[in-house]
Design a binder for these strands. Structure first.
Ligand SMILES: [Zn+2]
Length: 572
DNA sequence: CGTTTTTGACCTGCGC
DNA sequence: GCGCAGGTCAAAAACG
């Protein structure tokens, strides 16, 4: 009974590791998973350039043309039949080398002069090029570095904020919280612990752990310490609580996820006692593609027909690392099939590309907001202003001041869920409406209420990685086009994000992506968010480790980026 | 041949 | 206890 969407396309899309496929695929892969090179806009280029440069000058050209006929290109390189500018350049260089002597010897002729001039020019150009490339590279590095620092700082900030909020609420809420499984204390400790080690991959920070018991708390702490040593902070995975058999799952986890034994045991117990729900972060984006490319590798492990939606929901799990607990669900919005809803759950236990990391951070912020929310209650609490948010929310806001975010706490969702809506129109009003809408909507889970069709120009463009690339691939009309396509295809939305952030920092205007955000928490009297430890670990993940990449804003620049606002991240 | 996808079976939680 | 719905597992099939 399940409908199944054209599988092949999907696959092509997101994975393709082996890679030796057809040209198209390769290209696509390259573009898409950025792991190869095109990582976010600019960076990618440069990087590419460098590489190219290393091999030979022509690469630039390659790069640009890469999407389409690599074959012909190769031909040129090797054959040397017709030469193009680049080749000429090479010749000149050659000339230069040998030419210098010749010129010296002959010491005459205009030709010689010309040669020299040319040589000189070439040299100059070459040098210039080199310099530029170098600079680009440096810039890129800086950007990376910046992004990292930013992430680290951001996390710290977030955590501090959270702690503060907890402190504030501690007396009054503690009991409640504890009861709810959300021990703020635990969280606090844990975060702290985790913080220290902060490495580049910070994603996991806020995983609230479900610990209703002291043991759980201890466990979490232990884990934090243990994790601290490592780089990637392997969190234990927490899988899901809900669905399928715990027993099975636990066993599996043990094998799959290398988790500190002690922590795990405790975690299991805790988990057993109370199944918690892990927070989730869902992203709504317009895309015809079956799945948005987010830079991670996913393996589909299930598909189901969701209840009030004609479209099937697909379940994926991260395969970038062996025991990575991150999962995601992909489903099309019932109201508007052009909208793809991707929901992430869990934290990656491995390093992510910078872009992904950034995204993870963003999501984390969202999750933090969600988690730190005041006793979630009732149905919908749209947060229109930062003031109404919990500390985390505040921080989120601060982080993305321009984002028109909003949070809604809803009782209907089974899991605490925060939604980043990239389909929203920039107008805050729309977002608000949306949020309210959402809140009102009774239905289950992650879903979306009726969505405003206001089209967000830029965003729309952003999230269509797959389709675009295909088109671009087939006919790369111009460099720009190709580039655009590449960008569009580039999954590393993160990079774009980073770029946006950095630009903001620098005072540049990034595009304005407005996103609407809404959060839903299970009312359950309390955010039950805490961790679940899934079978084993006990850690709850905050949802957010997930990475998703949307297309970068940069993308293409197609739309007029207005500047009104800057950065927002869309993230996935 | 190793991976990933497909898909029906299973499991768990929840409401009645 | 039953049926439903959301999730996951895992054997078989499809890919590359
Ligand atoms: Zn992962």
């Amino acid at each position: 009974m399940e409908l199944r969407p054209p599988p092949k396309q999907q696959h092509h899309h997101h994975r393709r590791r082996g890679g030796a496929g057809e040209e198209e695929e390769e290209d696509q892969a390259a573009m898409e998973h950025g792991r190869l090179s095109l990582r976010s806009g600019g960076g990618a280029f440069w990087r590419h350039d460098d590489e190219n440069r290393r091999r030979g000058e022509i690469k630039e050209v390659d790069f640009f043309l890469s999407s389409r006929d690599s074959a012909s290109r190769r031909h040129d390189d090797s054959g040397g039949g017709g030469r193009d500018d680049v080749n000429i350049g090479l010749d000149l260089l050659t000339t230069m080398n040998g030419g210098a002597a010749a010129a010296a010897v002959a010491g005459e002729e205009e030709t010689a002069k010309n040669h020299r001039k040319e040589a000189a020019v070439t040299t100059a150009v070459d040098a210039e090029l080199r310099r530029v490339v170098e600079e680009n590279r440096r810039l890129r590095d800086m950007l990376d570095e910046l992004t990292r620092s930013y992430n680290a700082l951001y996390h710290q900030f977030l955590q501090v904020t959270q702690q503060q909020s907890h402190h504030n609420h501690r007396h009054p809420d503690l009991t409640t919280i504890m009861n709810n499984n959300r021990s703020s204390l635990t969280q606090t400790h844990r975060t702290t612990a985790v913080l220290n080690p902060t490495t580049t991959t910070t994603q996991q920070f806020l995983e609230p752990r479900a610990s209703s018991t002291a043991a759980a708390v201890a466990a979490s702490i232990d884990e934090g310490e243990a994790a601290g040593g490592g780089d990637a902070s392997p969190n234990s995975s927490l899988m899901s609580n809900a669905g399928g058999g715990n027993k099975r799952r636990i066993a599996q986890d043990e094998t799959a996820a290398p988790v500190p034994a002690p922590a795990r045991e405790n975690g299991e117990q805790a988990a057993a006692e109370l199944p918690c729900r892990k927070p989730r972060v869902s992203v709504r984006a317009r895309s015809e593609a079956p799945m948005i490319s987010d830079g991670c590798q996913w393996r589909k492990y299930g598909q189901k027909m969701a209840k009030g939606n004609p479209c099937p929901r697909a379940y994926y799990r991260c395969t970038m690392a062996n025991g990575c607990p991150v999962r995601k669900q992909v489903q099309r919005c019932a109201e508007d099939k052009t909208v793809l809803i991707t929901t992430y759950e869990g934290n990656h236990n491995h390093h992510l590309p910078p872009a992904a990391t950034t995204m993870a951070n963003t999501t984390s912020a969202a999750a933090a907001m969600l988690l730190s929310g005041p006793a979630p209650s009732r149905d919908a609490t749209p947060f229109a202003h930062p003031h109404s948010y919990p500390a985390a929310a505040m921080s989120f806001h601060q982080s993305f001041p321009y984002a028109s975010t909003m949070a809604t706490l809803s009782a209907s969702a089974p899991f605490p869920t925060i939604t980043l809506d990239l389909t929203q129109s920039p107008s805050g009003a729309a977002g608000l409406m949306h949020a309210l809408h959402r809140a009102a909507a009774p239905p289950p889970a992650i879903h979306h209420p009726a969505m405003p069709f206001a089209v967000p120009p830029q965003l729309a463009a952003m999230y269509l990685p797959q389709q675009r690339p295909a088109a671009a691939r087939q006919m790369p009309a111009s460099v720009m086009e190709t580039v655009t396509a590449a960008l569009a295809a580039d999954p590393n939305f993160t990079t774009a994000l980073a770029a946006a952030i950095s630009s903001v920092v620098a005072g540049g205007g990034a595009q304005a992506h407005h996103q609407a955000m809404s959060a839903t928490t299970p009312r359950a009297g309390a955010g039950a968010i805490a961790g679940d430890g899934n079978g084993d670990g006990g850690n709850a993940d905050a949802a957010v480790g997930a990475t998703a990449a949307a297309e970068a804003p940069a993308a293409s620049g197609s739309p007029p980026r207005v500047a009104t606002q800057s950065c927002t991240t869309s993230t996935t």
